[in-house]
Nucleic acid binder design. Structure first.
Lengths: 279, 279
DNA sequence: CAGTGGTCTAGACCACACT
DNA sequence: GTGTGGTCTAGACCACTGC
């Protein structure tokens, strides 16, 4: 049945002037004023829905691994059609924030998920069939408190001198030390994180972060250069001072692009390489 | 108006048994048998449409930069709804094979397009604001014919000993030689390509390839390691033998994932870095 | 079986570009 | 104005999961 003019008019108003809609019947589950204030006033509906879902994710309404409401439930809650919710969820699952499972539901993505473990680790063995592409051993060198220097403070969007956690560790593949990594985390968000916890947990470090500290890394940027190790670092990796290494500087972001980790790693590329797919 | 049962039945048949549909009215513009033979028999309609569009692109029915038929025209041609064409086109434009321009039409993507020039070149200046991120100078060292060794033949899916083109060149940024690059191309596809042509054309090399040789690179894989230059290569880049460099090995693919180029490049990362965004 | 996501359709209207 | 892509809706049915 075609839309009536009145219905169409409602839709138009809904898209262009959300705050002027009559009171909805959703029992205050969400607030169109808040919506209008958080996103550009005249963005497409599905992007507004996307922003709302993002807010709920960020607020922890649904935890990593949990199922979110079905498309029809969300459609009812936001007073839009299921197709509009679908488009929002489509984009979020493309960005790996949500994970759709046919017949089951839609789930908050997690770094624990088998399929997405270590999805930020691009170093793979040259002979992929021979050795495992996940680190076989993880050694925490230290985990200590420090004050952020100006450069780090700026990158993490913290006030200078703010408390941070400094972590150094070595990752080995097939018992060969291959990665030397220094991480810097905001102290507030990771209060209580210790070398023991880092050493003992199973699976990816980012899975620990999201499970225990509620910090989920969703994107990252890496800057790669070729360097020589300094003598101390070379010793840690059991290599000659003169060995060329990849230096990978990472800035990892959580929801709404808030930076939550700086990482500088040295990759030994004798038996491995950094793999990148260009589309 | 809701679908009748008969219409639904038609849709079902169309999805599951394309070859059993009655003759279409499209004047033989396409052949459902051919369709069924090219893609899995039971794939969603929109993927079948996607495969058909891909075939037309590959066959050169629409050249890079040209406009393809409107969504409604394609829908009529393929006897599906506009929404189904839309989904196919959506995916293709996400893969950078097509480019949608609101109000204008949908175009075959091209490496000449301002927005996508050098989209495979991930080396950017450390201070992005200071210097340009596109090479200011290009020097062809040589462009010569050779026979493919077994390894190269395998990568390019050619018979061993097949004729190939070997190209070496140096790219400079702000007059500083920064990239030393060796490319290998299948001789058949690039018959007549000369050092002069490579030297003199404007814009990205991949734009030349698609304009003059009809070879459009759509994807690529890169393997990055850290190396030392050999003395000769070091001289070309005007650096010390001991300078660490990024070695970037690329395999570039055209439509249907056919490999068409092998490239081994050395990147000097004194003033630049390889930038990668992880999603 | 019911519930979930996945596909497909048909139709309305908006936003943008060209003429 | 006409034609293009972009958004939104409503409704049907399919495919998969788990009770």
């Amino acid at each position: 049945m075609p839309l009536t003019i009145a219905q169409s008019e409602n839709i138009r108003l809904c898209m262009r002037e959300p705050t002027q809609l009559p009171e909805t019947l959703n029992g205050g589950l969400f607030d169109r004023e808040a919506l209008a204030s958080k996103v550009p006033a005249f963005s497409p509906l599905y992007q507004q829905i996307k922003a709302l879902i993002l807010q709920s994710l960020n607020a922890g309404e649904w935890k990593p691994g949990e199922m979110i409401p079905s498309e029809f439930e969300l459609a009812a809650r936001f007073q839009v059609s299921q197709g509009t919710v679908r488009k929002a969820v489509d984009e979020l699952s493309q960005e790996h924030l949500l994970l759709r499972k046919q017949g089951k539901g839609t789930f908050v993505a997690t770094h624990s998920e088998e399929k997405f473990q270590y999805r930020f680790l691009k170093l793979v063995p040259n002979a992929e069939s021979l050795s495992s592409s996940v680190p076989s051993q993880r050694t925490i060198v230290w985990c200590k408190k420090a004050k952020a220097n100006p450069e780090i403070a700026k990158s993490l969007q913290l006030p200078p001198g703010c408390g941070v956690l400094q972590i150094r560790r070595i990752l080995s593949f097939a018992c060969v030390p291959t990665i030397l990594e220094d991480m810097v985390l905001p102290g507030d968000a990771f209060k209580g994180l210790s070398a023991e916890e880092l050493q003992n947990h199973q699976g990816p470090t980012y899975a620990l972060f999201e499970k225990t500290y509620g910090v989920r890394m969703v994107r990252a940027q890496e800057r790669i250069t070729a360097v020589h190790a300094n003598p101390k670092d070379a010793q840690m990796l059991n290599i000659n001072d003169n060995t060329p290494l990849l230096q990978v500087e990472r800035l990892a972001l959580t929801y709404q692009d808030k930076p939550m980790e700086i990482r500088r790693a040295l990759y030994k590329t004798e038996h491995h390489h950094y793999r990148n797919d260009l589309n």
